[in-house]
C-alpha cells in the first residue's frame, strides 16, 4: 500500500511558532501503537485531573471508550473507508476515518454523495479539558477537516461533507466551520448531524487566503 504524505504546519502553543508536520492518507500500525502507548495513558491522566477537579463523569471526554484498533479492524480492506492521520515529532496528533457511501441530507443537496466523517479525534494533549487548558498543537482538527473536504472534491462530491459531532465539538462545527446543523439524530445516539455545502467547503479552504 502506498501512502501519500502532505506537508502541513501545526501551531506549537508553547514555542508560539509553526512547526512542520505530516498528513498521511492512511492509518497504519504505528498510529495504533501510538494510540495504545501514548493516547491512552494521556487520556487516563486527563481523567485523573478531571476527577481531582471534581468534574462530573458525564462531562469527561466522550471518546474515553473508543478503540481505534477496533475501528481500524472494522474497515480493513474497505475501499469506501479512507483514513488520515497527522504526525509530528514521531507522534500521532490526530486520526480520522471517512465513509464515501452516504448521501447528503440537506434539502438543497438531498441525495447527492458526500464524504461522511465516521470518526475524528485529536490526541488528548491537543484538546481543552479544563478552563485554561492550552492544547500542545493547534490546527490538527482543521487539517483533518480540510482533508475530508479535499477528498470530497477529488471524488467529485464538490466538497460536501457530513458528520455527527460529539457534544463538546458542536460549537466548532456550527460556528467556526459554518456547517448546517440538522439537529439531533435519534439513529446516532442523538448526536447532532452537521453538513457542509460546496459553498461553505470553499469558504473553509479560503480561510487562510
Amino acid at each position: 500500500m502506498s501512502i501519500d504524505v502532505s506537508k502541513v504546519f501545526l501551531f506549537d502553543n508553547s514555542a508560539k511558532n509553526l512547526v512542520e508536520a505530516e498528513l498521511l492518507d492512511a492509518i497504519v500500525e504505528k498510529q495504533l501503537l501510538d494510540w495504545e502507548d501514548q493516547w491512552i495513558p494521556a487520556r487516563d491522566e486527563v481523567n485523573r485531573r478531571l476527577k481531582a477537579a471534581g468534574v462530573d463523569r458525564s462531562k469527561w471526554p466522550q471518546t474515553g471508550h473508543w478503540s481505534w484498533r477496533d475501528k481500524q479492524l472494522g474497515i480493513k480492506g474497505s475501499l469506501s473507508n479512507p483514513s488520515f492521520c497527522v504526525v509530528h515529532a514521531d507522534e500521532t496528533q490526530g486520526l480520522m476515518i471517512l465513509d464515501t457511501l452516504p448521501s447528503a441530507r440537506l434539502s438543497s443537496q438531498a441525495g447527492k454523495p458526500i464524504v461522511y466523517i465516521d470518526y475524528l479525534e485529536v490526541a488528548p494533549w491537543n484538546r481543552k479539558h479544563l478552563p485554561g487548558d492550552v492544547p500542545r498543537y493547534g490546527a490538527v482538527g482543521s487539517i483533518l477537516m480540510r482533508a475530508a473536504i479535499e477528498l470530497s472534491l477529488q471524488e467529485g462530491f464538490k466538497g460536501r461533507v457530513g458528520l455527527h459531532s460529539l457534544p463538546q465539538s458542536n460549537d466548532w462545527y456550527a460556528n467556526k466551520c459554518g456547517m448546517t446543523d440538522l439537529g439531533p439524530d435519534p439513529a446516532k445516539q442523538n448526536l447532532r448531524y452537521f453538513e457542509m455545502t460546496p459553498e461553505i467547503a470553499q469558504a473553509f479552504i479560503n480561510r487562510g487566503s
Binding site: 502541513v8 504546519f9 501545526l10 501551531f11 502553543n13 509553526l18 471526554p61 466522550q62 471518546t63 473508543w66 490526530g94 480520522m96 466523517i117 465516521d118 470518526y119 475524528l120 479525534e121 485529536v122 484538546r127 481543552k128 492544547p135 493547534g138 490546527a139 490538527v140 482538527g141 482543521s142 487539517i143 483533518l144 477537516m145 480540510r146 458528520l163 455527527h164 459531532s165 460529539l166 463538546q168 465539538s169 458542536n170 460549537d171 466548532w172 462545527y173 460556528n175 467556526k176 480561510r207 487562510g208
Partner: peptide, 18 residues
C-alpha cells in the same frame, strides 16, 4: 494553518466526531 490554529484557539470547543 496559522489562521485555522487561531480560529481553533478562539473557541472552547474540541473537534471529536463519531
Amino acid at each position: 494553518c496559522l489562521r485555522m490554529a487561531q480560529l481553533e484557539a478562539e473557541t472552547p470547543s474540541n473537534f471529536e466526531v463519531g
